[in-house]
Design a binder for these strands. Structure first.
Lengths: 160, 160
DNA sequence: GCACATAGCTAGTTTTTCTAGCTATCATGC
DNA sequence: GCATGATAGCTAGAAAAACTAGCTATGTGC
C-alpha cells in the first residue's frame, strides 16, 4: 500500500473537510436568518439554483432528505414567496421544472456577495497547479459523499 | 492585483466547493434515513462529537440556526434516545456539556465507515505538498464561511 | 450589592414534516 | 396496442419540530 501523505496530515485534511461542512451549515443558518426564512428554504434555493439539469419536486426532496409530500409543500412556499417558478418539464409530463426567479436569485446573491468575494480572494492565492489539486480533491470528496447518499436510495427501495 | 489562477479554474473551484456542501447535505440526509432519525439530529450529533471544546445547548442551537428553546427540545430527544449525555459544565454552573455516548458515537461511525474509508483513500492519493495545499484551502474556506456566520450573530443582537 | 447579560428551561402556538393514499404519466413485456 | 408496475406530484389529516414569550439561576461589570 502506498502512503504518500503522513498519517497526521491525512487526518487533518479529513477533519478540516468535516469542519468545512459544519461551517457551510452555520453559514446557511446565518443566511436564513438574514433572509427571514427557514434553513430548509435556503437549502432548497441552493439546490434549485445550482444544478445544471433541472430539479423537480421529488428530486429536491431526496436531496434534502424529506418525503415528496413535504417537498411539495416546500415548493408551494417558495412559489408563494416568489422565489421560484414551477414550469412543466419539456419531455416528461409528470414532472415539473423548478427555476429560481430573478428576484430570488438576486436576494441570495446580494446577501452572499461579501462572502463570495472573500472566497474568490482565497482561491486567487492558489497558483494553477494548486488550484487543480484543490479542484480534484473537491470533486473526489463530493463524488464519495454522493455515492454514499445514492447507496441509501437503493436500500430504501427494499423498504426495511 | 495578482491573478495566479485563470478565471475559469477559479470559478470551477468555487462551484465545486458549493457542490461539496450540497453533497455533504445529501450524505447527511442518507445517514439520517439509515439511523431512523431526522436530519437535524444527525447534524446535532456531528457538532457534539466533533468539537474540541465542549458544546452546550445554546451553542448547539446557534450552529444549527435554531432558538434555544428548540435546541433544548432537541437535546432532550438526543438524551432520551441515548445518543448523548448532559453533564454540568465544570466552571460555569449555568451551562451544560453535551457528550456523545459510546453507543451514539459507534452508531454513526459504523454507518459512515465505508464512506470514511473511501475518503481516506482519496486523501492518500495526494502527496505531502498537495495535501498541505488542500488543507490550507479548506481552512481558509471554512474561516470565511464561519466569519460570515458570526457577522449574523452581531446583527441579530441589534434585533432588526 | 445592583443592573444587565447569558445559559437553559417550560408552556402554549405555529409551522413543518410525516403517513396514507390518490391521479396522471412513463417504461416494459406480451 | 394494451396490461403491469414504477415514478412524479399532489391532497388531507396526524405527528413532530421549531417558534415566541417568559421564567429561573448564574455569571459579569460597575
Amino acid at each position: 500500500m502506498l502512503i504518500v501523505v503522513d498519517e497526521r496530515t491525512g487526518r487533518a485534511v479529513g477533519l478540516e473537510l468535516r469542519r468545512v461542512l459544519q461551517a457551510g451549515r452555520e453559514m446557511q443558518a446565518a443566511l436564513a436568518r438574514r433572509l427571514g426564512v427557514r434553513v430548509t428554504d435556503v437549502q432548497a434555493m441552493d439546490h434549485v439554483a445550482a444544478t445544471d439539469e433541472p430539479v423537480g419536486t421529488v428530486e429536491l426532496g431526496d436531496r434534502l432528505g424529506m418525503r415528496s409530500a413535504s417537498a411539495a409543500a416546500l415548493v408551494g412556499r417558495l412559489i408563494e414567496a416568489g422565489h421560484v417558478v414551477r414550469e412543466p418539464h419539456p419531455a416528461d409530463r409528470r414532472r415539473v421544472v423548478l427555476t429560481p426567479t430573478v428576484h430570488g436569485r438576486a436576494e441570495v446573491r446580494d446577501q452572499l456577495a461579501p462572502m463570495l468575494d472573500e472566497l474568490t480572494a482565497v482561491i486567487s492565492r492558489l497558483d494553477d497547479s494548486e488550484a487543480a489539486t484543490v479542484l480534484w480533491f473537491l470533486q473526489q470528496a463530493g463524488a464519495v459523499m454522493r455515492s454514499y447518499a445514492a447507496l441509501d436510495t437503493d436500500e430504501a427501495d427494499r423498504g426495511d
